[in-house]
């Protein structure tokens, strides 16, 4: 009995030893020499493989970063500046300053603003709906509300609000990777600068129809009247194809356009409540709790402005 046990133990130990020796030599022979920094960088990245950086997944970015001589312009849109600084440290390089960005939804066509004129009864997918029909309202440009952006988001940062039927971006979760922008067949979503203290102003409409047509379809449509463009002191607003667009690199967040828009098509977010009647111009540079990147951005804005004046 005891003999059997001993023999078994001995045989198993011998097999184990033999296997260990073989494995050791094989691993020596077929060793893959890899930059250890790739693994380190990869572990810092979110691992969502969203493709927002332009490389095939997080490992792709890590490899590209390790190989690149100049890492400016490369980086993970889903990671914070601190993470990018850490990665730069691993590589022994300087991280380029990144202006934080976020996805914004350029449509205010809620169920109230934009009445349904048709009943869509096909598969609940924006890609399918838009390939077959312009939409189930009078507006052939706006959000369809079937949530292709929600499916595309790897960070759970965008949801369809059941009351309005429009997508809502979660500021805390959005990494501005751009997956929703690519998923939206109507190009409703745009990646814009997050703005100082998350304050942003943008035109919530992309309807290129003539004013009257657009207005008939949706009460919050941009009618291309150009009032905002005239009002804007910084030349940030252009009107093209009957729709206004605010250049976020020029916008100074004065909010004059928001107040003046006759259809309330311009959205503002995260501003302190307005003091009636005059709109307050916030000066983020002077506020103490502003994030580190805000002054930089403001400085950039200023230089651009100077350039324009020249």
């Amino acid at each position: 009995m005891i003999n059997t046990i001993l023999i078994t133990v001995a045989v198993l130990a011998a097999i184990g030893l033999a296997a260990a020796i073989i494995l050791y030599f094989v691993s020596q022979k077929f060793k893959v020499v890899e930059d250890p920094r790739i693994g380190e960088i990869e572990s810092l990245l979110p691992g969502a493989n969203c493709g927002g950086c332009g490389f095939p997944g997080c490992r792709g970015l890590a490899e590209a970063l390790t190989k690149a001589d100049d890492i400016s312009g490369m980086g993970c849109p889903g990671s914070s500046a601190e993470v990018m600084a850490q990665i730069a440290k691993i590589l022994g390089k300087e991280a380029s300053a990144k202006v934080p960005q976020i996805a914004v939804v350029r449509c205010k066509g809620t169920c109230q603003n934009r009445q349904k004129t048709l009943e869509y009864d096909g598969a609940k997918s924006c890609a399918i709906a838009s390939a077959n029909f312009a939409g189930d309202t009078g507006c052939s440009f706006g959000c369809l509300g079937y949530g292709d952006c929600v499916t595309a988001c790897r960070f759970d940062a965008i949801q369809i609000d059941s009351a309005t039927g429009l997508p809502v971006v979660d500021e805390a979760k959005c990494t501005s990777c751009g997956a929703c922008v690519r998923a939206c067949p109507k190009q409703v979503i745009e990646i814009r600068n997050k703005g100082p203290r998350n304050m942003r102003v943008w035109v919530s409409c992309i309807n290129k129809d003539k004013g009257a047509v657009a207005r008939k379809a949706c009460t919050a449509a941009c009618i291309g009247c150009g009032k905002c463009a005239k009002e804007c002191a910084f030349g940030a607003i252009t009107v093209e194809n009957n729709v206004a667009y605010i250049d976020f690199t020029k916008c100074k967040l004065c909010r004059k356009c928001v107040a003046d828009c006759p259809t309330k098509a311009i959205s503002e977010i995260n501003f302190p409540p307005r003091k009636e009647p005059a709109a307050e111009v916030p000066k983020p540079e002077t506020k103490p709790e502003v994030k580190a990147e805000a002054p930089k951005e403001a400085a950039q804005d200023k230089t651009e402005q100077i350039k324009e004046q020249k």
Binding site: G122, A123, S125, A127, I128, A131
Partner: peptide, 12 residues
């Protein structure tokens, strides 16, 4: 199931 809806999209 809307089989053809999805197939048409995929085909395109």
């Amino acid at each position: 199931r809307p089989l053809l809806d999805y197939i048409r999209m995929g085909k395109a």
